[in-house]
Amino acid sequence: MSIFDTTALTISGINNNSSTGTAVKARSQIFELTQAAEDAVIHPKDCGPFPHELRAWLAARIAKKAGHSELALHYMQIADPKASSDHPGHETHMDLRTLTDFVDKVANMPSDIEENDITDMQAAGFADQDIVRVCQLVAFIAYQVRITTGMHTMKDGAV
């Protein structure tokens, strides 16, 4: 895969023959690792209690609430085909309300997170390992939202 086919550069609209593309090529390892990080949070080999489709749905939800409709669409396309903005599209035994409340807060109001947000997740039956998995997913998408937003603005203003 060329770095220009990675999610980050496709969504940002960066191509090979631009001044932004030249800067990007000098950091090619970073974009290869960024794609590998996306694969690790959306399509891990060991997904724990969070199937790939649910991860993609959560990623779409985070991107949408961050105002990034193109990135949200990218993740929604790999979520369950029956998914809607309010529901992942398949039944789950986990406490979806507690999970989405936590995801929304970590994604959108990280400064307000307190210890009780973690204990609420634990009380809802999420193991510590699962809480770390969710945080990695949310945190990576927060990064992906910002690199694609930043590079898109960079590309548009390049001379």
Binding site: S19, T20, P110, I118, C135, V138, A142, V145, G150
Partner: peptide, 27 residues
């Protein structure tokens, strides 16, 4: 320069990631 702007985007975005681990998972 363009290379510096890209590095700034990457470093600030990286901490959008790191803060959501460090600040959320511990004190």
């Amino acid at each position: 320069k363009e290379a510096e702007i890209l590095d700034l985007i990457l470093s600030a975005a990286l901490f959008g990631w790191a803060n959501r681990l460090m600040h959320v998972l511990g004190d």
